Simulated scan of single mutants.
Amino acid sequence: MPMRGLTIVVAQPDPDRWRAALTMACAAAALGGRTRVYLHEGAVALLATAATAPPGLPDPTELRAIAGESGVELIACQTGLALAGLAADTERVAAGGLIDLLATLADDRLVTL
């Protein structure tokens, strides 16, 4: 039986939640399921925030690269992109909204951080 997908919503601009979402997404992608991370409104600013990691662990930039290589889809709230002054194509993420995210959820598990 194929692995169920995982959709993670990052609801706040919290670097620890962002790191947890990326780590969880990479793990789910390694198991073969469709994996998406959606950054909601203010959380989109995390795309432009330089954050560090504890010694020996990858920082968020490295985690984003690993996620991309693993097939994790990153989606940024269109309103959040506008508020942060970012463009989806320059951040290697797709622009999207909650309606589309929920409409395409299918049988994915949904996690909110």
Rank of each mutant, 00 (worst) to 15 (best):
I8G: 13
I8E: 12
V9S: 01
V10C: 14
Q12D: 15
Q12L: 14
P15Y: 03
D16V: 10
R17W: 06
W18E: 11
W18S: 03
A20V: 14
A21G: 15
A21W: 04
T23E: 13
T23G: 12
A25D: 09
A25E: 11
C26E: 03
C26G: 08
A27K: 08
A27N: 15
A27H: 15
A28R: 10
A28L: 03
A29W: 05
A29C: 05
A29S: 06
A29F: 05
A30N: 06
L31P: 15
L31V: 15
G33E: 10
R34Y: 15
T35R: 04
R36Q: 07
V37W: 06
Y38T: 05
L39E: 09
G42I: 04
G42Q: 07
A45V: 08
A45Q: 11
L46W: 04
L47K: 01
L47W: 02
T49N: 12
A50F: 12
A51F: 10
T52S: 13
A53W: 04
P54C: 04
P55C: 11
P55E: 13
D59R: 00
E62M: 05
E62S: 14
E62D: 05
L63Y: 01
A67I: 04
G68F: 07
E69W: 07
S70Y: 02
G71V: 04
E73D: 11
E73S: 09
I75Y: 00
A76I: 02
C77T: 01
Q78H: 11
G80K: 02
G80V: 06
G80S: 01
A82R: 15
A84D: 01
L86I: 10
D89T: 13
D89V: 09
D89K: 05
R92I: 05
V93P: 00
V93Y: 01
A94E: 11
A95C: 06
G96A: 07
G96C: 05
G96H: 00
L98Y: 12
L102S: 06
A103P: 04
A106I: 08
D107L: 03
D107T: 14
R109E: 10
R109D: 01
